[in-house]
């Protein structure tokens, strides 16, 4: 394949793009997959342990203990982010730390920390949801649509 002057721009672009995609070094897919599975599994297992802990300490049902568990994991992730360890761990764990609620906490904490220098209002306040906001927006819109559709279906029945 050759790219020469005189080739039309769109042909040139599609030729080059194909050349890049072909040569692009891929991520270590197997290693990433194993790491994501193991680390994500571990986070959830730890979550299960924390649930048991709160169940016993707070004398609540296992189901009710899910709330303080989420809060605990968020606390730990925010702390690790603040101390500067989360991004280093996530480099290896990938989705294993991003998909559990720890990733949500990291996205919010990292944004809040980063923009702290722009002040308490515009920085921390305004930018905290820069990355995590999308999850909330799409979660809420989904919940709204599912709720409305369910409501209509029930009315029709």
């Amino acid at each position: 394949m050759t790219i020469r002057e005189g080739t039309s721009q769109t042909t040139q672009q599609s030729l080059y793009r194909r050349m890049v995609l072909k040569a692009e070094p891929g991520p270590p897919r197997l290693r990433n997959a194993v790491m994501a599975f193991v680390s994500g599994g571990l986070v959830c297992m730890v979550g299960e342990g924390i649930t048991d802990f709160w169940e016993r300490v707070l004398r609540i049902s296992h189901k009710q203990a899910a709330d303080p568990t989420v809060a605990t994991l968020i606390f730990l992730a925010s702390l690790l982010t603040g101390l500067g360890y989360f991004d280093k761990l996530a480099r290896y764990a990938g989705a294993g730390l991003a998909v559990p609620v720890t990733g949500f906490a990291n996205a919010m904490t990292a944004s809040a920390m980063e923009f702290k220098r722009e002040g308490l209002i515009f920085g921390i306040g305004g930018r905290m949801f820069q990355l995590a906001g999308a999850v909330i927006v799409y979660g809420v819109v989904t919940a709204f649509l599912v709720g409305i559709i369910t409501g209509i279906v029930r009315l029709v029945r």
Binding site: V70, A71, I74, F75, S78, L79, T81, G82, L83, G84, F104, A105, M108, T109, A110, S111, A112, M113, E114, K116, I124, M128, A132
Partner: peptide, 15 residues
Amino acid sequence: AAIVFAFLAAVTFNP
């Protein structure tokens, strides 16, 4: 929890 802890971490730590 995420808002509170993110806020506290941002006030406490620097990137």
